[in-house]
Design a protein around this nucleic acid. Structure first.
Length: 598
RNA sequence: GGGGCUGUAGCUCAGCCGGAUAGAGCGACGGUUUCCUAAACCGUAGGUCGUGGGUUCGAGUCCCGCCAGCCCCGCCA
């Protein structure tokens, strides 16, 4: 529908200019343009589109808005290209112009999508290399609930951008470099030296425990702190023993992360903080050369413009600590520079997207400002922090286990799948169905993981997210199972003899309001995808898929498909097919595979 | 103290560039199955959009003040 909207916008604009040439001339002189204020109809009874542009003209023209709307509509009706697309426009309320597409136009749009693998969603004209930086767990720690949202949201955004045809690089900026390694290596040298020279000498669970102990010691023991800092310097300086130990730890964690990514079907390219190590000194030197550096309390800082702290003094971004070490701001700056830098020696990105929690907003704002002032973000480049809220338990507090520990991602996914399985088994008994074990495992896994992903994605990411297994696995409402079920119903029609493979009939004929509602819903896909691409809000796609499922279920409930006589039957089958394809495509962009039966 | 985010139905949340009578889902109440999976569908009840101003033809949406909650604020990431 985007192309039609664009055409319509042009026709409206032309009509307005013909109706009010003086006003158009005046606008042009002011370097502006009359605005038809075209929008999708706010309610189905208003048609497909509404143009609100008559209202703001009332005052400057000194005419009642309805009279203005009438003049626009007269000009519009005189445009044969418009009359071919639309029914005669209606003027409603204070001066809204309601526009309804001709039924044969709608049917033709559906027809075009039936033979189109992209379902009417065009590929972008201007491909722009995009980097999506997401997930980013820390080496020597397990992935936990804190990584859930970044991983799921980042993957979905990457999928949408890829589908639009952009070259996307999915980067896993793992924490594989900072002070934490000094701590861990120092501690391991004392308590489990074999872990530093032999692969898998201790398992990851123990490593996590060691990490916790190391952190404790770091906080309590000043001597340990000093040794740890020295260890970091050794590592960053390339000491072979430290490097070898570091490599072993990373390998072990990496395999563990990969198991989670495989399970979630998420592709990521690991490029940890350590990757930027060789560039850190250069970053600081260049900031110095640009005259941006200030030494304060022994630390080398860039003071931010427009951001002041407690005493009204500007806030600093510290790029080199007083002990000479670099920190995460330095790494992030090196990363920005590398990512925007042209191909050999850089990624040549046009857009860089960071999917991290909202708590890092200040940090990124600071780092982006410094990068911009240093000239590392090209004029065509955009760098965006895509923030998201905390995962909370049903008590409204940060999600923890009953014992008060951080929830491991693996456990969280296990529980979702277990609950889905228990639910499925209970229903099989109730419905006296019998299914083999492979079916049960496949459905439970798909539903459980889909529920976790969908619950997260369906919420506007900027707010905190209240995690609830019961709600996400519910079979009704805006949940993954409800959407999956809509796909399954259509697959059921195919099993009962409906042909969903062929291209559909030569001419589609629709008569029922439920059919038209479904047609209109199906045609919204391209607009929704464009919106997600621009605003990076996957919940818009979720809302759309849910509404599509609801409209389909209404249709399915009230309009017979297989029992209908033939002009209607094949047209309805075509609608079923396009609905299934649309749902599958949309779910795919959310990282959710469909099911044939459940 | 400064900054950020949030505040919409009993609960969880949508609400697009400011547009018509503010929408879902859950929960509550009532109905629908000889028929493609009732995991569905239809209906009823439920709102001073935190609050006070301002901008405008029009504000949940934009601006300012205030209140409440969460998060961040120099050498952790």
């Amino acid at each position: 529908m985007l192309r039609i909207a664009q055409t319509l916008n042009g026709q409206l604009l032309a009509a307005m200019e013909r109706a009010f040439p003086a006003a158009a001339e005046q606008a042009r002189a002011a370097g502006q343009c009359l605005d038809p204020q075209l929008a999708p109809a706010s309610k189905p009874e208003f048609g497909d589109f509404q143009a609100n542009g008559a209202l703001p003209l009332a005052k400057p023209l000194g005419q009642p808005p309805r009279a203005i709307a009438t003049a626009i509509v007269e000009q519009l009706a005189a445009d044969p290209a418009f009359a071919e697309l639309f029914e005669p426009p209606q003027i409603a309320g204070p001066g809204f112009i309601n526009l309804t597409l001709r039924p044969e136009r709608l049917a033709a749009e559906v027809q075009a999508r039936l033979g189109d693998g992209r379902l009417g969603v065009p590929e972008v004209e201007q491909r722009a290399p995009v980097i999506v930086d997401f997930s980013s767990p820390n080496i020597a720690k397990e992935m936990h609930v804190g990584h859930l949202r970044s991983t799921i949201i980042g993957d979905s955004l990457a999928r949408v951008l890829e589908f639009r045809g952009h070259p996307v690089r999915r980067l896993n900026h793992v924490g594989d470099w900072g002070t934490q390694f000094g701590m861990l290596i120092t501690h391991l040298k004392q308590v489990a030296p074999e872990a530093l020279i032999t692969a898998d000498a201790v398992d990851l669970g123990d490593l996590v425990a060691f990490y916790r102990q190391a952190k404790q010691r770091f906080d309590d023991d000043e001597a340990f702190q000093t040794t740890s800092r020295e260890e970091v310097v050794k590592l960053q300086g390339g000491d072979p023993v430290s490097l070898k130990a570091w490599g072993l730890l990373c390998d072990q964690s990496r395999r563990e992360f990969q198991a989670i990514y495989d399970r979630l079907d998420i592709a990521l390219c690991e490029r940890g903080e350590s990757f930027y190590n060789p560039y850190l000194a250069g970053v600081v030197a260049d900031l110095d050369a640009l005259g941006l550096l200030v030494v304060d309390d022994g630390a080398r800082c860039v003071f931010l413009e427009g951001v002041s702290g407690k005493d009204g003094k500007p806030l600093p971004v510290i790029v080199q600590k007083s002990d000479g070490g670099f920190n995460y701001a330095t790494t992030d700056l090196a990363a920005i520079r590398y990512r925007f830098a042209p191909a050999p020696g850089g990624d040549g990105a046009h857009r860089v997207i960071y999917v991290t929690d909202a708590g890092q907003a200040n940090h990124f704002a600071g780092v982006f400002q410094v990068a911009r002032r240093a000239g590392w973000i090209p004029p065509y480049g955009s760098v965006e922090h895509v923030p998201f809220g905390l995962v909370q338990g049903e008590d409204g507090k940060k999600l923890k286990t009953r014992a008060g520990d951080t929830v491991r991602l693996r456990d969280l996914l296990d529980e979702a799948v277990e609950r889905a399985e228990a639910d499925l088994r209970r229903r099989l008994v109730e419905e006296e169905r019998s299914e083999d074990e492979a079916f049960i495992q496949h459905v439970a896994t798909t539903v459980g993981l889909a529920a976790v992903k969908y619950a997260d994605l369906s919420q506007n990411r900027t707010t905190n997210y209240q995690f609830s297994f019961d709600r996400m696995l519910a079979l009704q409402g805006n949940t993954a199972p409800y959407l999956l079920y809509a796909v399954v119903r259509i697959a059921g029609i195919a099993r009962k003899g409906g042909d969903l493979q062929s291209g559909g009939p030569a001419a589609l004929t629709f008569t029922e309001p439920q059919e038209w509602a479904l047609v209109r819903e199906l045609l919204k896909l391209d607009g929704v995808i464009a919106e997600v691409e621009e605003e990076l809000l996957p919940n818009r796609l979720c809302t759309y898929l849910f509404e599509l499922s609801q409209v389909f279920n209404r249709f399915y409930d009230q309009v017979p498909v297989l029992k209908a006589e033939d002009p209607a039957r094949s047209s309805r089958l075509a609608l079923c097919r396009l609905t299934a394809d649309t749902l599958k495509l949309g779910l795919g962009l959310l990282g959710i595979p469909p099911l044939e039966r459940m």
